[in-house]
Amino acid sequence: MSNPAPLIKPANPNFSSGPCAKRPGYDVNKLDISTLGRSHRSAAGKDALHKVISDTAELLQLPEGYRVGIVPASDTGAMEMIMWSMLGARPVDICYWESFGQGWFADITKQLKLQNVNPLSADYGLLPDLSRVNPDNDLVFTWNGTTSGVKVESGDFIADNRRGLTICDATSAVFAMQMPWEKLDVTTFSWQKVLGGEGGHGVIILSPRAVERLESYTPSWPLPKIFRLTAGGKLIEGIFKGATINTPSMLCVADYQDALNWVKEIGGVQASIHKSLNNLAVLEAYVSQNSWINFLAENPANRSNTSVCLSLDLDDTQIKQFIKLLADNQAAYDIGAYKDAPSGLRIWCGSTVQESDLTALLPWLTWAYREVSK
């Protein structure tokens, strides 16, 4: 029996988890490029950097005293900068359940060589027992496991009266999930994820407690210049006002500003979160109706609403054929699982993805499955 391909394709078949799809209606020709060719240290350059910093803080509704800074090397650079600058003052709990969290654990134990480290880990699809987190220790964790599709449900496992600091890698959670800022002392993300910005830059959000640690603790190892957040025992405030470390791409900054303006236009972060949750609901309904596809996340409460990871009733070769069929037919690009994760799909459902495109994708998933499972 023939298996005709669907007639309708997603208007935007970009479902990559990073860089993710550009916002609906994006037009590169409409970016404000007045800072191009200018020094980032000029008044115009600093003003543009300060505006994205202040708009980020305003949109995320950060508590009084929290600081936002732009740093080099995406979320990875932001996390490395924080770990090298702040860890070692207390024992460390590191929670990981996918490849990026496991990478932070490796850095803490093999690069920084910290001795008093308590790993709380789980296999792909699961969360570790977060009740074992010690409030006296520093805590390092990812809010959303981009390569596993498993997120923490809330910050309830973090003690209000904690003595240690919480360091949260939230690169695919900020602007898409509710973040309990009072529970988070350091948060890192990259705007290439949820907002579809261009890569190369990371964002660090510091609480007053995190600033206090930076100004009162000096690690025993040397810090490269690019990692230094203090000078003379005081926070380098300029980083959090637009005087960034290293030379930023002003084109990327303009692109990020465009994304922030869009979030404002649609109603702020709550609207952005709502769009992402609606996108997840499209896939949840589809999975519930098809026995050959399942969420990698075993607990529905912990399903990511951005990096949706799915397992298929197919072998590895068939899954590769499945993914290639969709790409060759321009129905979906870049939806294969992360290289270290179990074979399957990873479909981005962040707010820049249109619900109509996900709906159009569904018949193509069915078609591809029937093609490769003949």
Rank of each mutant, 00 (worst) to 15 (best):
L112Q: 02
K113Y: 02
L114N: 04
V117K: 07
A122K: 14
A122R: 10
A122E: 13
D123Y: 15
D123I: 14
D123A: 15
Y124F: 15
G125W: 01
L126A: 12
L127Q: 05
D129P: 08
L130M: 07
L130Y: 01
S131Q: 12
N134E: 12
P135G: 10
P135I: 11
P135R: 09
N137V: 09
L139C: 06
V140S: 06
F141H: 05
T142H: 08
T142L: 13
N144P: 02
N144M: 04
G145H: 09
G145N: 12
G145M: 07
T146L: 14
G149H: 11
V150H: 04
E153H: 02
E153D: 08
D156L: 13
D156R: 10
F157R: 05
I158Q: 06
I158G: 09
A159T: 09
D160A: 07
D160V: 01
R162I: 05
R163F: 11
G164L: 13
L165P: 09
T166D: 13
T166F: 02
I167E: 03
C168F: 00
C168P: 00
C168K: 00
D169H: 08
T171L: 08
F175W: 07
F175Q: 05
A176E: 13
A176Q: 10
M177H: 15
M177E: 15
Q178M: 00
Q178A: 04
Q178E: 12
M179C: 11
M179V: 12
P180A: 07
P180M: 02
E182F: 00
E182T: 04
K183N: 10
